[in-house]
């Protein structure tokens, strides 16, 4: 490993896995040599990719064996198609069978529209596989800080993870800015207002309201360190967990439900100068967030 800082945002799926796991520990499952490409993209005269935009395999992080998946946001926006989704489903079923923790590096716009029905069902299968693994004591740690963010069904999958680690670039949302604008008008959401996008969906806001657990700098080593810590946390998922999440999400609506902008919410959290948040460096923000944020406290 070098001492040169590596941007998580700029890295591809294979670079992220290399930065995450111990050197020479990674073994890929159904890799590009298997040439398992999408059976459907050809209908649209679109090029296929030999890994269908996701890399899955096993490795270790600081000596702890894990299963790992990374989406490639540069292929079809990291979207879930039939093969892409099935690779993650298979990995999660193995996690349950082996009792082994999983780390998922999300980078996705959601369902791949050219195979929308297959992608939609794949997301439902993945969410079920995560919950069934977690009920057996498996940790599923999500990392979000890529170019495509974590949108659509990807946001729902992230919401099933035991711990979410985000950078400022890690946008989490169901409906993307362009789709809200297309359907509801520019008055509802101006997708060209990038500052609005970041403060409504970005990693800092998600951290402050308890939508993500750990905030890190856009640095692969920081993601690795946070994943290591998350894998050492207690693995708990039962009725009490969801009762606590129900209370946490009800409280969020009661507390912030009438507010129209993220800065109003940040102010209500007790932050004196909410307008300073977007430009704040990661370290300073993390310190501030630790003091004022709504914590998920494992209610996830």
């Amino acid at each position: 490993m070098s001492n040169i800082r590596q941007s998580w945002y700029e890295a591809g799926a294979r670079e992220r896995i290399a930065a995450l796991v111990d050197p020479r520990s990674f073994a890929e499952f159904v890799g590009p040599e298997c040439r398992e490409t999408s059976p459907h993209l050809g209908i649209f005269n679109l090029p296929a990719q030999f890994d269908d935009g996701i890399v899955v395999g096993s490795g270790s992080i600081n000596g702890t064996p894990v299963l790992v998946a990374a989406q490639e946001g540069r292929f079809m926006g990291g979207a879930f198609g039939e093969v892409h989704g099935a690779k993650l489903t298979g990995l999660l079923r193995a996690a349950k069978a082996l009792g082994r923790d999983v780390v998922i590096a999300f980078d996705t716009g959601g369902v791949r529209l050219q195979e929308a029905n297959a992608g939609e069902i794949a997301i439902a299968e993945i969410m079920r596989a995560i919950v069934e693994a977690r009920l057996d004591g498996v940790r599923v740690v999500g990392l979000i800080g890529g170019r495509a963010g974590c949108y659509g069904g990807g946001g729902l999958i992230a919401g099933c993870c035991s711990t979410l680690i985000v950078s400022e670039q890690g946008r989490i949302s169901v409906t993307g800015p362009e789709v809200i604008e297309t359907n509801k008008g520019v008055e509802e959401f101006d997708s060209r207002d990038r500052a609005l996008v970041w403060r409504t969906m970005g990693g800092k806001h998600r951290t402050l309201i308890g939508g993500a657990d750990v905030f890190v700098d856009d640095d692969a080593a920081a993601f690795r360190a946070a994943a290591t810590a998350a894998l050492a946390r207690p693995a708990k998922f039962d009725a009490a967990t969801l009762a606590a999440e129900q209370a946490r999400l009800e409280r969020r609506i009661a507390r912030f439900g009438d507010m129209s902008d993220a800065t109003d919410i940040w102010h209500a959290l007790g932050i004196n100068d909410p307008k300073a948040i977007p430009d704040m460096p990661a370290d300073a923000f993390a310190t501030l967030a630790a003091q004022y944020r709504e914590s998920a406290d494992d209610a996830r």
């Binding site: 946001g155 729902l156 992230a158 919401g159 989490i172 949302s173 169901v174 409906t175 809200i180 409504t200 969906m201 806001h205 998600r206 309201i209 939508g211 999440e245 999400l249 969020r252 609506i253 912030f256 439900g257 507010m259 129209s260 902008d261 993220a262 919410i265």
Partner: peptide
Amino acid sequence: DELLGLSE
């Protein structure tokens, strides 16, 4: 809905 975390 997105501001308040619909995905969750």
